[in-house]
């Protein structure tokens, strides 16, 4: 398929990830939506790597995966810590920035 197909798919997945961040209240599901967005961008990288004819895009995607893994680790640790004290995993709970 042409590169455009893959990148359009990537755009769709990305948008769905964004929607997930905006709509769901559970912190873990929001986090998973962020992972979805990262995956979508990885797909775009790899598609463009094939388009450009070199492997740089794939290398970048590889690094993105690594960083995403590290991010998931720390993020979930934070969520667990918050859950311990608050007993709730809703991201609407901490609203101290309210006017």
């Amino acid at each position: 398929m042409t590169t455009a197909h893959y990148v359009v798919l990537s755009a769709i997945l990305f948008s769905l990830g964004v929607l997930g961040v905006l709509i769901r209240r559970n912190a873990i599901i929001v986090f998973m939506s962020v992972e979805m967005m990262l995956n979508a961008s990885n797909l775009a990288f790899v598609a463009f790597a094939r388009q450009a004819g070199n492997l740089d895009g794939q290398t970048i995607a590889f690094f993105v995966m690594t960083v995403a893994a590290a991010e998931v680790v720390v993020g979930l640790a934070i969520i667990m810590t918050i859950f311990r004290t608050r007993r709730s995993a809703s991201i609407d709970e901490p609203n101290l920035l309210k006017y």
Binding site: Y6, I28, F31, M32, E35, N39, N42, V46, A47, A49, R50, Q58, A61, F62, M65, T66, A68, A69, V72, V73, L76, I79, M80, F83
Partner: peptide, 28 residues
């Protein structure tokens, strides 16, 4: 897309490690 290495890494690291980490945390 001619990226076999990346495909394998996707399954091993992302699906196998990251998503399972998610599942464990959901359990806790």
């Amino acid at each position: 897309l001619d990226a076999p290495f990346l495909g394998m890494v996707q399954i091993i690291v992302y699906t196998g490690a990251v998503m399972m980490l998610f599942v464990f945390v959901i359990m806790i």
